[in-house]
């Protein structure tokens, strides 16, 4: 618990947001199978939306301020508006993102987080485009915070965070002292539809940005990016009663 913005009591919450190309609109070039992502519209990663929702819910329940961080490039800047509309108070876009490199992303963001003394840092447990799932752990270790992963719900008492986690056959309740890194899943919440007044207010709000000018070391080399070949049998069963039997037969015989 601390004083922020000159007096109001509350928590200093950060939410880490990833901007990704819309996966539904990625196509493979016919013939070569080359993945084309250049003209694909950008969007907030769906798990980042869940993270924003979780952070904003904490602010609404316990008071405080939510700051959003995006590590991306110039095209990512306008997407911070959606985070604002959902209730994020301030945002910083760090441009200069070149390619998937979780170690670099973790260190770039951790630099920022360290200087700003956050109580809680919320992010998605992984992202829909790369699925590494490395950032929550890496960031927690770099800023020396406790990590609670894959939470279902979060409660706060003073400087202590209590979270419910879903494990395969049980629900676990975990407590940790702030600062805490929390990763969320799609089960954590339902991202909100921002009220129109907030959408319009978000449009008028400024978005800070700064450029990361350091190196982007490549640990791995992407040799090609081609859609997997999938051969479909294209069998169509028109009549339900025959179809069901045929499908059952196909599953039994071929899909073992």
């Amino acid at each position: 618990m601390q004083y922020i913005d000159g007096g109001s009591v509350g928590y200093n919450i950060a939410v880490l947001i990833k901007v990704i190309p819309d996966l539904e609109q990625i196509k493979a070039a016919s013939g070569t199978g080359q993945i084309q992502i250049e003209k694909v519209p950008l969007r907030l990663d769906i798990l980042s939306e869940h993270a924003i929702e979780a952070a904003v819910q904490l602010k609404e329940k316990y008071g405080g301020k939510v700051t959003g961080f995006i590590f991306g490039n110039n095209e990512s800047i306008p997407l911070m508006k959606k985070a604002y509309a959902m209730g994020v108070d301030e945002g910083l876009v760090i441009t200069g993102y070149k390619e998937n490199n979780p170690t670099l992303t973790a260190s770039v963001i951790s630099e920022k987080l360290k200087s700003l003394q956050f109580d809680i840092i919320v992010l998605g447990n992984q992202s829909a485009d790369t699925y590494t799932g490395l950032l929550p752990g890496m960031i927690a270790s770099k800023i020396n915070a406790r990590l609670i992963g894959n939470v279902l719900s979060i409660e706060i008492e003073g400087k202590e965070v209590k979270a419910r986690k879903s494990l395969e056959k049980k629900i676990e309740v975990v407590k940790a002292q702030m600062p805490v890194v929390i990763s969320v899943t799609q089960e954590t919440n339902q991202p909100r539809l921002p009220p129109v007044m907030q959408i319009m207010a978000a449009g008028r709000k400024t978005i800070q940005s700064e450029e990361y000018k350091g190196q982007t070391p490549s640990y791995t080399l992407t040799k090609s990016r081609v859609a997997p070949k999938s051969e479909r049998k294209k069998q169509i069963f028109e009549k339900p009663e025959d179809g069901i039997q045929a499908v059952v037969r196909v599953i039994k015989e071929e899909a073992r």
Binding site: R192, L193, P195, M197
Partner: peptide
Amino acid sequence: LVLNQGKAPKGTL
């Protein structure tokens, strides 16, 4: 419901 509170059935959202 929708414009002030962002409330709508899940399918609608």
